[in-house]
């Protein structure tokens, strides 16, 4: 794959939509399979995309997830319009959560999402503004 032919696609995520949550992540997984990316990298990207997507569904009003694939790397950009994260350091602590009962009933909201994302990524950046939303940039090396 040449740099000029890098693949890019944007997926919409709707806050509170627990029924369709996960579909964009599964599409991303399938795209990477079609491209012929290494299975271990696909697994890490898919898990990361899904965790990030669930965070938007749970805490954001709406958001987008952009997949960028170049010969060197895979990048996920996730941004949401939402309440934002007050203390990012605290949010990164395994087990810390502000989840509601509904989120927990879905099997999420245990405070493992962001730590899981960080663990699976090669590079992870998070920025958040209270009352506006959160942006994640997650990078995976392909080679």
């Amino acid at each position: 794959m040449h740099k000029k032919t890098a693949f890019e696609q944007i997926f919409q995520i709707k806050g509170g939509d627990f029924i369709n949550a996960g579909e964009p992540s599964i599409k991303i997984r399938n795209i990477l399979k079609d491209i012929g990316i290494d299975a271990d990298i696909i697994r890490r990207v898919a898990i990361t995309a899904y965790e990030a997507e669930m965070n938007v569904v749970m805490y954001g009003q709406r958001g987008t997830m952009k997949l960028l694939v170049t010969p060197e790397k895979i990048v996920l950009h996730i941004q949401d319009k939402g309440q934002g994260i007050e203390d990012i350091e605290l949010a990164m602590k395994p087990g810390f959560t502000t989840a509601t009962e509904e989120m927990r009933e879905m099997g999420f909201g245990a405070g493992m999402g962001l730590p899981n994302i960080k663990k699976n990524a090669d590079r992870f950046n998070i920025r958040s503004t209270i009352g506006q939303g959160t942006k994640l940039r997650i990078t995976f090396k392909v080679k």
Binding site: F18, Y50, E51, M106, G107, A110, M112, N116
Partner: peptide
């Protein structure tokens, strides 16, 4: 806990769970 299922993403092919919603399948 679906996050635990994702966290320990080893070679297991089988999941035992008491959670029955649609996100179990996606996970």
């Amino acid at each position: 806990l679906m996050s635990d299922v994702l966290r320990f993403s080893g070679p297991a092919k089988l999941l035992l769970t008491g959670l029955t919603n649609i996100q179990v399948i996606r996970t």
